[in-house]
Computed example of a mutant assay.
Amino acid sequence: MGAPERSAAPAPAPYLRIAAELRGRIVSGELRAGERIPSTRRITREWGVATATATKVLAVLRQEGLVRAVPGVGTVVEAPGALPGHPARTTRRNGARDGTRHGARDGESALTRERVVRTAVRIADAQGAAALSMRALAAELGVSTMVLYRYVPGKDELVLLMADAVFGEVELPAGAPADRRGRLEAAARLQWAVYRRHPWLARAVSFTRPLLSGNALALMEWMMAPVRERVTDASELLYIMVAVAGYVRGVAVNLEEEAEAERGAGVTGERWLEGRGERLEAIIQDGNYPMYARIAARRDLAFDLDSMFAFGLARMLDGLEPLLEGLPEGRGTGPSGEDT
């Protein structure tokens, strides 16, 4: 799923790079509470980027709670609370301090990057990825938003650290299958279990922009070890890995949607379907949907993600088996099917 070395990471998008630079100015105190930050026009001029890119820069900083738009003034730095060199903000409700210097230090005293990441994971697990923001995380930890930037440079890096942490939970079985199909299946089920525990994770994983996680990479290495002995072509190894891991992720993206639906409606997917049985019957009763009629008649039919995952995984491995078992030792085939 990517390389573990940070140095191998691709250069950040221009808007993220500019946002990081402005964020640094805010955290360092160069830009103080209430001061205007560069406008979109100034960003386009100073950094030589398009207006759309400049707009994204300001959007990132707003989402992180670092700036706010003031009608007739522009975008200004949000009051940062109790960071050194900045006055604490007062609340509108009762004029009390939003956080004293002493309180901020107390909150920071036990703060570590690991604690920040684990707290973020806990929020995402319980409330979904949409509920996780730098501001929400800071509130949970009892510190100001900008204190978090001492531990993580931004939300993108935070999500990467979260993903790496949860993949690090995977314990590779001591008696691992040594055969190629058995190892692929075991690894796929380990991945499914991680996605099951952390429904937000599937959307954080990408195969076109690989997740730079050493723990995820270790799992992929373990999965592909028996295959690597038989297939030497790098492209073949990549495609097999992505086919299996991509299948698991493809089913797992539904986990967060289901979790969100249950949180919102308070009803499981099974109960939701039961409540719509009459509507389905009304649609299929005219005889034009014989397949659905046969399915609806099976009251004992398992219609859940675990069952669908297991069925699809078995069929995928059935399809890969002739390739894995039919190649001579140390040979592979390229994308065109020719021997390499």
Rank of each mutant, 00 (worst) to 15 (best):
G2K: 12
P4F: 02
A9L: 14
P14Q: 04
L16I: 11
A19Q: 04
E21C: 12
L22I: 13
S28N: 07
A33F: 05
R45A: 12
G48E: 04
A50G: 14
A50W: 09
T51A: 14
T55C: 14
K56D: 09
A59W: 15
Q63K: 15
G65R: 11
L66M: 14
L66Q: 08
R68C: 09
A69W: 11
V70G: 06
G72Y: 05
G72T: 00
G74Y: 01
V77T: 00
A79C: 14
L83F: 04
L83V: 05
P84Q: 11
P87K: 14
R89H: 07
R92D: 12
A96S: 14
G99H: 06
A104P: 02
S109E: 14
V116P: 08
A126L: 10
G128Y: 00
G128V: 03
A130F: 12
A131W: 07
A136R: 15
E140Q: 07
V143S: 00
S144Y: 13
S144A: 13
L148V: 04
P153G: 10
G154R: 13
K155W: 09
E157V: 12
L158A: 03
V159S: 10
L160A: 13
L160W: 03
M162H: 07
A163T: 12
R180W: 13
G182H: 06
G182P: 02
R183S: 07
L184K: 00
E185H: 03
A186R: 09
A186F: 07
L190F: 10
L190W: 07
R196M: 11
A204H: 11
F207N: 09
R209V: 12
S213K: 13
L217N: 15
W222A: 08
W222F: 05
M223E: 08
V227C: 01
E229R: 03
V231W: 03
Y239K: 08
I240T: 08
A245E: 02
V248F: 08
V248M: 02
N254I: 09
N254E: 13
E260M: 07
R263D: 10
G269T: 07
L273Q: 09
G277T: 01
E278M: 04
E278V: 03
R279V: 14
R279K: 05
Q285K: 15
Q285V: 13
D286E: 04
D286L: 00
N288G: 14
N288A: 11
M291P: 05
A296P: 01
R299N: 09
R299S: 11
R299V: 06
A302Y: 06
F303R: 13
S307V: 08
L313V: 01
R315P: 04
G319K: 04
E321P: 04
P322Q: 00
E325W: 05
G326C: 00
G326D: 02
L327P: 02
G330W: 03
G332I: 04
G334L: 08
S336P: 02
S336F: 13
S336K: 07
